[in-house]
Design a protein around this nucleic acid. Structure first.
Length: 534
RNA sequence: GUCCUCAUCGUCUAGAGGCCUAGGACAUCGCCCUUUCACGGCGACGACCGGGGUUCGAAUCCCCGUGGGGACGCCA
């Protein structure tokens, strides 16, 4: 059977790095298996969903090459189906209506099945006893069991937390008083309770005794995960205003789209236990689950507004290549098991597997991404590099009218040195008349008298030269002659010359740089820098 | 607070009881190449969270502790 996966973001705000990493893993696994990858936009939160968010989401996916195989599904378009499913659940007795302080009418709640053993993965763990807070009042009705456990009572305040858990969590429940006397036995009343005909309020309770049941599923990355039913509650699937909630929409859509594998952030693990019961009640097979660890920021904390939420589009703005980002993100929390890092998309698809995904959180390291990006840039065909670089350059004040031949010469010098396309913004010294000078570097390199004399000699030599003979080799020869004549140490004139003609201490080879600059600009800049000779 | 979960260099990771004197990559530092800037090459620095167990043998298995994260919504 062919696998079907989906990426199901909610379009509230910008897609961040963690979301898109989940999309990448879904895509990779679908492609690896030769299966289907789908996009579902979970826009049921009308308050926070925006058209801009949907637009940027699709833009980013296209940029990264995350193509999907069927038209995207908008969750809001499935509303009728969701409501229909809710009706069916109510009719089956798997859900019930209840007014719980929400706005207006009754909401629909999904009931964790009393007959839970019918669901694969549910097991009896044994008889357990839970101590309750002193003089605890226990309420039992169709919506669950309400109580305050002794464990939840704070030592400081003496206050406990009132918990409301599902009926299914308390099979064979017996409520006992402090002397161990039986106050209430659930089995005696269960039929009426489930039918909503009976509500029991028990005062002076001290202890619960019940048969504990657990749900277990095998997560493709985290292994076997188990949760006791008595820590689960019935949950709202249709709001009192009639709109379906995430849990319902998500599961119904997964059924509708025939999803076989759910790969998502591990903030969803707790939902999984509930969704398993929903799938079962809907008569559908439970998909395979793979929960991805989260990505944290440089401080080791989850991404927040302060980090700008690591919006994916920002990486594009910062001059990263989509393949590099894709490659880097694929390596966050996953590795092929050998030492490969720079991998083509085909290699990633071939090597990808969910069981090699790590189960601990990973920290995003922009420096490693930058290095990888540099490798990708170095591997670009020169023409492609030049055309991307040109786009960047044209946005600069000095980039309005660039000579194509000159620009491509500069690209030839700079491609191997560029880590991101944002580096292009520092190329201004190639194209302006007088560049921006690094004053500190000038102070350091141009204050030396012998150096100044040597630069003067350089000016003299260049002036004598026809403009079209100022080649890199010529420049090198001139420098060699001068250092020999002045008794300046070999190589000691290069950096002063560099800062004098480019304003900076880093760049391309200085001889090639002077050649590209040409006679006029070189001389103008050397004259400009005389202010440091005082 | 309760439940769940995670833990190898600063960071990403390899590691399935003996191949581990713990491997690779980024970052950092040094050397070489280069009369310069880079690239590249070579090298250095640098980790199994702590404590108990199991075993002839533990980074690896078990327990406890500590620390991190997640979940406990009519958000998704």
């Amino acid at each position: 059977m062919s696998v079907r996966l989906r990426f199901a973001p909610s379009p509230t705000g910008n897609v961040h790095i963690g979301n898109i990493r989940a999309a990448i893993f879904n895509w990779l696994y679908a492609r690896h298996c030769g299966g289907t990858f789908l996009l579902r936009i979970e826009d049921t939160d009308l308050e926070r969903s925006t058209p801009e968010a949907i637009r940027t989401l699709k833009e980013v996916m296209e940029w990264l090459g995350l193509n999907y195989d069927e038209p995207e599904m908008y969750q809001t378009s499935q509303k009728d189906k969701h409501l229909e499913a809710a009706e069916r659940l109510v009719a089956q007795g798997d859900a019930y209506r209840h007014a719980k302080g929400g706005a207006g009418g009754e909401a629909v709640l999904f009931r964790l099945p009393w007959d839970a053993e019918a669901v694969p993965g549910v097991a009896v763990a044994g008889t357990v006893e839970v101590n309750l807070a002193t003089a605890c009042t226990v309420t039992v009705d169709e919506t669950g069991v309400e109580f305050t456990s002794a464990a939840s009572v704070s030592e400081k305040t003496g206050q406990g937390r009132v918990e409301k858990k599902c009926l299914a969590g308390f099979k064979d429940l017996e409520v006992l008083d402090e002397n161990g006397a039986l106050l209430f036995r659930l089995n005696d009343a269960i039929a009426d309770v489930l039918a909503g005909k009976r509500r029991e309020i028990i005062g002076g309770a001290a202890k619960f005794r019940f048969t504990q049941r657990t749900v277990t599923y095998r997560d493709l990355v985290k292994g076997e995960l188990t949760k006791p039913l008595n820590s689960l509650s019935d949950f709202v699937i249709v709001r009192s205003d009639g709109s379906p909630v995430f849990h319902l929409g998500n599961v119904v859509d997964d059924v509708t789209q025939g999803i076989t594998h759910i790969v998502r952030g591990d903030d969803h693990v707790e939902n999984t236990y509930r969704h398993i019961f929903l799938f079962h009640a809907l008569g559908a097979a439970v998909p395979q689950y793979a929960h991805l660890p989260m990505i944290v920021n440089a401080q080791g904390k989850p991404y927040s507004k302060r980090d700008g939420d690591a919006y994916v589009g920002d990486f594009r703005t910062k001059g990263f290549l989509p393949h590099a980002l894709f490659n880097y993100l694929a390596l966050l929390g996953w590795s092929p098991g050998d030492d490969r890092e720079k991998m083509t998309r085909e290699e990633l698809v071939a090597a990808f597997s969910l069981d090699r995904v790590k189960s601990s959180a990973a920290q995003m390291d922009i420096r490693k991404l930058t290095d990888l990006n540099g490798q990708y840039i170095a591997g670009l065909p020169p023409a492609e590099f030049a055309s991307s670089a040109r786009g960047r350059a044209e946005a600069q004040p000095w980039g309005a009218r660039l000579d194509a031949a000159e620009f491509s010469r500069v690209c030839g010098l700079m491609q191997i040195r560029a880590k991101t396309f944002a580096d292009v913004e520092g190329w201004g010294f190639f194209f302006t008349d007088i560049p921006v000078y690094d004053e500190k570097a000038c102070e350091k390199l141009l204050r030396d008298k012998p150096v100044q004399a040597a630069l003067e000699m350089f000016v003299g030599d260049v002036e004598k030269l026809p403009a079209d003979e100022l080649r890199a080799a010529t420049v090198e020869a001139i420098i060699q002659g001068i250092t020999a004549a002045c008794g300046i140490q070999q190589g000691k004139l290069n950096q002063p010359l560099r800062v004098a003609v480019t304003g900076t201490t880093v760049g391309a080879g200085i001889y090639e740089t002077v050649e590209v600059l040409g006679k006029a600009r070189t001389l103008a800049r050397l004259a400009h820098v005389k202010r440091f000779y005082a």
